[in-house]
Nucleic acid binder design. Structure first.
Lengths: 201, 201
DNA sequence: GTCTATAACGAGATAGAC
DNA sequence: GTCTATCTCGTTATAGAC
């Protein structure tokens, strides 16, 4: 017998999670209803509640991102910039659906906001340690803001050119930007005249 | 007498608008209720409906941004970058509450999304015309994404360092970033005048 | 009579009883 | 696993104040 009760239940749970991931990332927390998730998963609304306790519980399950999976951030400023850029490129290559569920709701849902805040804070702290400048914390925040803006533009707002561009082209354009923010020397600039670039401080 | 009936009404309308602006920008569209706006404005929920037709109508009134007020975008890539940076710095100096109402809801409310999309598209088109490169459209989108990310980080997500930093410091750090994205030569000037264009080299 | 406040309606949500 | 009570929302009718 292929489908025991527990197996059946596990499958239903998976269908619900998958449906929730899709709807939360497409519509955000508020506009996603338990009913819609249930319909999408061919299950009963009550079941969703039973399995995940509440709408909040379902969202938590969906939007949990493991910070530990992120690459560690260290080395010279230029290396930090490269690491971050590589991390961003990853997310530009394959759409990070679970993360999008979180991003989509971060401006309007308190828990999503907290979750994102915790994530960027952690990342920020690691970067701040790696960047030697006195204004390292601000530089780290700006790096985070640029990454956030890029992901929002591509996946959530769907800016046309940004949505269609290959990941490599985006990261190539962003590279000098990251280098500058990290405080390293901008390397592959399409500049006609490489001027001196000492940060005023 | 200071408060005639129409004057009284005008004041109530203003209180409602002000309350709505605050609540929409703090909580976003979905989590802002007509009732809460009315309470905040010391008015009646029915009045809000009567004055503004519907919740959508109220939001439209609050979130209307005049694109014409934006500075025109032209000149060399370096000048384009400077213009954009100046525009961003403006918004970093004084918190643009009405725009924040729109930004806060852009990821979860369809009309807010459309409004923002129209805005960035218009800006994008003007920039694309000004930037000579073949990948101008993508560069324009990225410039927009960086500005968006910066505003979100400072006002909506409230990244700590970014929230507290003076506008000049932020724009100084962002300047080479903008220059690189616009395709001009990175330069280390931090101008205080929007019109100021330092002669490079 | 116009403008404002109170009350009620129906839709749709979550969550807990069966 | 299903059904239904309760809550809150946006909105509309109704009664009262100027």
């Amino acid at each position: 017998m292929a489908t025991s009760r527990t197996e059946q239940r596990r499958q239903t749970e998976q269908r619900i999670l998958s449906a929730a991931r899709r709807l939360f990332s497409e519509r955000g927390y508020e506009r996603t209803t338990i009913r819609a998730v249930a319909t999408e998963a061919a299950a009963d609304p009550g079941l969703v509640m039973r399995y995940f306790e509440s709408k909040e519980g379902l969202f938590s399950q969906v939007a949990r991102i493991d910070m530990d999976a992120e690459a560690s951030i260290d080395g010279s400023p230029a290396e930090v910039a490269d690491t971050l850029l590589a991390s961003l490129r990853d997310k530009l290559v394959t759409e990070p659906e679970a993360a999008l569920a979180l991003l989509r709701s971060m401006l309007t849902h308190p828990e999503a906001s907290r979750e994102v805040h915790a994530y960027v804070s952690a990342q920020q702290r690691r970067m701040t340690e790696a960047l030697p400048q006195d204004n390292a914390a601000l530089r780290a925040d700006l790096l985070g803001a640029v990454m956030l803006g890029t992901l929002i533009g591509r996946y959530l707002i769907r800016m046309e050119a940004l949505q269609d561009a290959p990941a490599e082209e985006i990261s190539a354009l962003l590279s000098p930007c990251f280098q500058a923010l990290a405080g390293g020397a901008p390397k592959d600039v399409h500049a006609t005249e490489p001027d001196e670039q000492a940060p005023a401080g």
